[in-house]
């Protein structure tokens, strides 16, 4: 009996579909693939890179970009930059936080505490938009998760500033970036050689800073990543062992009757 295999037909159709996709989606350039330490199944963040990345965020990004869902205490959490408690307290105390009202009904400012949320550079989205030429600098808390391509895309945009191709007209305050969707971005290249001075002696090249700050942003978006990977390995091993035991029990139970499982 000839069995015309329709399962093969499905495979053929699906693989054809995969091929027509690239033909029709131009517009964006694929981001640079970076071999991040946090990518694989057991991936972890590079602690030193996270600390340097925080420095880049604090000294460069944070003048425009908020990070409202993080607290200073998170900087000392396991699986993060793991600053010491003293360092976290010092980082928090370096900003002035508005608090209140006090018993007199007045608002007052005080030095930040580890329990405070990261202080935003602007009081609201509108203020931040108007101060940045009409383009809102997005909050960075989950930015890596909010872009297709994630960390690779983030890094690529930081590295993607180039002279615009001949004939491309750019308005004032608009920059050419080959990885940005539409190739136009309203943020000037934020990283310049030596814009920060790393305390651990690492040379602050643009590439180094871009990698460090991207690592930091990836952690900020997924602070649970290390705990998740660690627990995931345990869960899968447990499930595999249990599956084997249940499989053997099943075989034994079904052997009582003349049927197969």
């Amino acid at each position: 009996m000839i069995r015309f295999n329709f399962k093969k037909l499905i495979i053929v159709i699906l693989s054809t579909l995969i091929f027509i996709k690239p033909l029709f989606s131009a517009e964006t350039i694929d981001p640079i693939k970076v071999n991040w330490s946090f990518k694989e199944l057991t991936g972890k963040f590079d602690r030193a890179s996270l600390q340097r990345g925080f420095q880049v965020y604090k000294e460069v990004c944070s003048s425009c970009h908020s990070m409202q869902y993080l607290s200073y205490r998170n900087l000392g959490d396991p699986g993060g930059p793991e600053f010491t408690l003293e360092e976290v307290k010092a980082i928090a105390a370096s900003v002035e936080i508005e608090d209140g009202p006090d018993s007199q009904g007045e608002m007052f400012t005080r030095p930040g505490k580890p329990s405070d949320k990261f202080k935003s550079p602007y009081p609201n989205v509108e203020a931040s938009t108007v101060a940045n030429g009409g383009a809102y600098p997005p909050d960075m808390s989950v930015l890596v998760k909010a872009r297709p391509g994630g960390a690779d895309y983030m890094y690529s945009v930081l590295m993607g500033y180039e002279e615009p191709p001949a004939g491309m007209k750019l308005d004032d305050g608009v920059y050419y970036n080959k990885y940005m969707i539409g190739q136009k971005i309203k943020m000037a290249s934020p990283l310049l050689e030596g814009i920060v001075e790393y305390s651990d002696g690492t040379e602050a090249t643009v590439d180094q800073m871009a990698k460090d700050v991207t690592t930091f942003l990836a952690w900020a978006a997924e602070p649970e990543l290390e705990a998740r990977h660690k627990l995931g390995i345990k869960v899968i091993i447990y499930l595999l062992l249990l599956t084997i035991l249940v499989y053997l029990s099943m075989k034994k139970i079904w052997s009582r009757i003349d049927s197969e499982v």
Binding site: L239, T243, V246, Y247, S249, M250, I253, W254
Partner: peptide, 11 residues
């Protein structure tokens, strides 16, 4: 018979 088979598939 079916509970153990379902359990195996569920795992």
């Amino acid at each position: 018979y079916i509970t153990i088979k379902d359990a195996f598939a569920l795992l």
